Simulated scan of single mutants.
Amino acid sequence: MTAEKTRPFAVACMVAAAAVLTDQFSKAIALTALADGRRVPIFGDAFGLQLAFNPGAVLGTGSGMTWVLTLVGVAAVAGLFVMAARARTVGWAAGLGLFLGGAVGNLIDRFMSPPGFAIGHVTDFLAYGDLFIGNLADIFLAAGAIAVAVMLMLRQRATSGTKVAPATPPTFGVPPEAKQ
């Protein structure tokens, strides 16, 4: 691989690693600081910190199929890794790195957290009112998805733009056939 091709992949790996480390560090702090089950308000009732363990996916969906979510997570991480390796720009790599880091962060919980290997519950601690409780990996997933969507829109805009014909010198009222 040339340096041109490895640079975006290196960026994706560094962004993903930073996201995973930040996510896992924040979860370790939450497990210690919020172990008593209390809710710590940050912005009144709108946002706070509260420890929760999610056996499911977004908003607790699929909570009875944790092992399936683990398999889907493994497949997603593999696919994102391949996409990151094929990224051609730093922008794409950074977006995919965020997405990959978020997916790996939650997948670590699936493998390492109780109740057991590959059926672990994801540690959540960011309480959004009474709507749901999430974690930093979820934020990284959302940020990666937004970054990838923006990159797709920019690419679409660049490829679907109308092509402008090259400028021709003014004719000053002389018909084109007369100029030949």
Score class of each variant (00 low, 15 high):
R157E: 09
I146A: 15
F111I: 02
P169D: 08
P169Y: 05
G129W: 13
V122M: 00
M112N: 03
G161H: 05
M151A: 14
G144P: 05
M151Y: 05
G161P: 01
L136F: 14
F125E: 08
F172A: 11
M153N: 00
R157S: 13
P169E: 13
G129Y: 10
F132Y: 09
G144H: 04
F117W: 14
G144Q: 02
A142N: 15
A165G: 06
A127F: 12
G120S: 10
T159V: 14
P115H: 08
P114R: 14
T123R: 02
Q156R: 15
F111P: 01
T162W: 10
L100G: 04
A103N: 06
I146D: 03
A137D: 08
P169I: 05
P166S: 01
G129S: 12
A137T: 05
P170I: 05
V164D: 06
P115S: 12
H121V: 02
A142G: 11
G120P: 10
G134D: 03
I139T: 13
G129Q: 11
L98H: 11
P169L: 13
G161M: 08
R155D: 13
A103F: 11
R155V: 00
L131I: 05
F140E: 02
A149G: 09
D109Y: 00
L136G: 01
L154P: 01
G144D: 06
I119F: 07
T171V: 13
L98R: 07
G102W: 06
F125K: 09
M151Q: 12
P166I: 00
P170Y: 11
T123C: 08
L98V: 10
I146C: 09
G134A: 11
D130G: 15
G102T: 11
L131E: 00
F125G: 07
A143I: 13
G102E: 11
A118P: 00
A165F: 12
G102Q: 10
G144L: 03
F132R: 04
L98A: 10
I108G: 06
L141V: 15
P169K: 12
L126S: 13
K163D: 14
I119E: 14
T168H: 09
H121D: 10
F111Q: 01
A118K: 01
V122P: 00
V164I: 15
L126W: 12
A137C: 06
G134M: 07
G105R: 04
G134L: 05
V150T: 05
Y128Q: 06
P169M: 07
